[in-house]
């Protein structure tokens, strides 16, 4: 009964809900969640309340904060506040769609090899190990340099980077489940593979998958920002935060806000994620899921 949280968790959403509450009751988890929520609010509500268009020139470049531009102007004379408020949505949209795509490929692949022949499993692990040995940023640079940058190509590049990682997690989790008697019984009963995956595997591994999904989204955000900073992000006038840092860094002495605000937002996002995922993994390792406490 104490072997694995994934197996122990009941197939109902109750296990996940209890895991989330256990995490949020811990101060670290609560602070992390709060930080994530803050960034999400800026990204989602921002475009609705931004005072200016992201491409409109509102004054001289690198102007200090004023009534017209609350956080001053950027390196081209556009409103920093409006660009910050508009910069998060694309970032989150690209990161989430890239992660969904990575899951679509990585999770299906991982569950398939855990149920099927060991030959396929060995080959897949080999391929994935090769992919994982390449630093993510290098993969991104190569793909984007070849295909040209844009939000769609960035999402695809991020998916290529994340899919092998998803594969590893899902494969490991579902192998443990697949070895259980009830799966063997279902297979012997003649249930279709799809039915086994849906009723037995997926139902048992979706809690760790959900946690991993959150982690992947944020690491995608950070990768996207890094690529943007290196000049491989979406073409101008895209206001995403990584690009803002890159564009405005030359004026940091004169007008720091164009750099500081996006830096803080990205920092809050990544620190928040780390706090939250740390708490999650600790909670799960302690076996404090389900009726643990």
């Amino acid at each position: 009964m104490t072997l694995s949280p994934a197996v122990e968790a009941s197939p109902s959403p109750k296990g996940a809900r209890s895991l989330v509450w256990t995490v949020l009751r811990q101060p670290q988890g609560a602070v992390g969640a709060l930080m994530l929520a803050l960034v999400a609010v800026v990204a989602l509500i921002g475009p609705l309340v931004a005072p200016h268009d992201i491409r409109t020139v509102v004054g001289i470049p690198l102007a200090h904060p004023s009534h017209a531009a609350r956080l001053g102007t950027d390196v081209l004379g556009r409103d920093v506040l409006s660009r910050v408020l508009n910069g998060g949505l694309t970032l989150l949209a690209v990161a989430i769609s890239a992660t969904l795509l990575a899951y679509l490929v990585g999770a299906c692949w991982g569950m398939a090899v855990s149920l099927r022949s060991s030959a396929l499993d060995v080959v897949s692990i080999g391929v994935v190990d090769v992919l994982l040995s390449l630093p993510p940023l290098v993969i991104g640079l190569v793909l984007l340099a070849g295909a040209g940058s844009g939000n769609v190509t960035i999402a695809l590049a991020l998916a290529v980077i994340q899919a092998p990682r998803v594969f590893r997690i899902v494969r490991a989790a579902s192998r443990e489940v697949a070895a259980q008697d009830f799966v063997e019984a279902a297979t012997a009963r003649g249930d279709s593979m799809w039915s086994v995956v849906r009723r037995d595997i997926l139902a048992n591994i979706w809690t760790p998958m959900l946690t991993d999904f959150g982690l992947r989204v944020t690491s995608s955000v950070i990768l996207f920002s890094s690529l943007s900073f290196l000049g491989l992000g979406a073409p101008p006038p895209s206001p995403d935060w990584g690009q803002m840092i890159s564009e405005n860094q030359i004026g940091i002495v004169t007008q720091p806000w164009g750099v500081v605000v996006p830096v803080v937002l990205i920092a809050v996002l990544s620190v928040g994620t780390n706090l939250l995922t740390d708490t999650f993994s600790r909670t799960m390792n302690n076996g404090a899921v389900g009726g643990g406490r």
Binding site: R55, T56, V57, L76, S149, G231, P235, P236, P237
Partner: peptide, 19 residues
């Protein structure tokens, strides 16, 4: 180029940038 793309909007011309 970024400024030009914004300026050309006034005449209904859409300038997409390929960086």
């Amino acid at each position: 180029s970024t400024l030009y793309a914004a300026q050309a909007k006034a005449a209904g011309v859409t300038v997409n940038l390929h960086k």
